[in-house]
């Protein structure tokens, strides 16, 4: 099950872990991604903290952690291939995985249908 935030991050829950990324819409808005600043493993975040930064030539966009947790894995591939976010934002372009999550925080997020509706309202 995938959840979306108003800031265009997505979270997918697999057992104890939450995988985090930015939505296809956000990736498109940013254009060609040139660099991704990722957190370090074992970093703790609470919801709304700046987890990382995604950059294009003319923009830098903070990524806010949509849920609280501890980083267990980062997507190393983005270091050499930041364009994975453009090519596959909601799959291969994931940013990091968190553990120690509080699933109740997901209640404040949108499901895919609600997010699609939200995007329509934006445009």
């Amino acid at each position: 099950m995938k959840y979306y935030s108003e800031d265009h991050e997505w979270v997918e829950i697999h057992g104890e872990e939450a995988t985090i990324g930015i939505s296809e819409y956000a990736a498109k808005q940013l254009g060609d991604i040139t660099y991704v600043e990722l957190p370090s493993e074992d970093d703790d975040f609470i919801v709304g903290d700046t987890l990382g930064v995604v950059e294009s030539v003319k923009a830098a966009s903070d990524i806010y952690s949509p849920v609280s947790g501890t980083v267990v894995m980062i997507n190393d591939a983005l270091e050499d291939e930041p364009n994975l976010i453009n090519e596959s934002p909601e799959d291969k372009g994931w940013l990091c995985k968190l553990t120690n999550i509080d699933t109740s925080e997901l209640d404040d997020m949108m499901n895919a249908d609600a997010y699609e509706k939200y995007l329509k309202e934006l445009s």
Binding site: S56, V57, A59
Partner: peptide, 12 residues
């Protein structure tokens, strides 16, 4: 690497 600079990042 202009995302480091004030015209893009402003206060940050």
């Amino acid at each position: 690497l202009q995302t480091r600079e004030q015209h893009i990042r402003r206060a940050a």
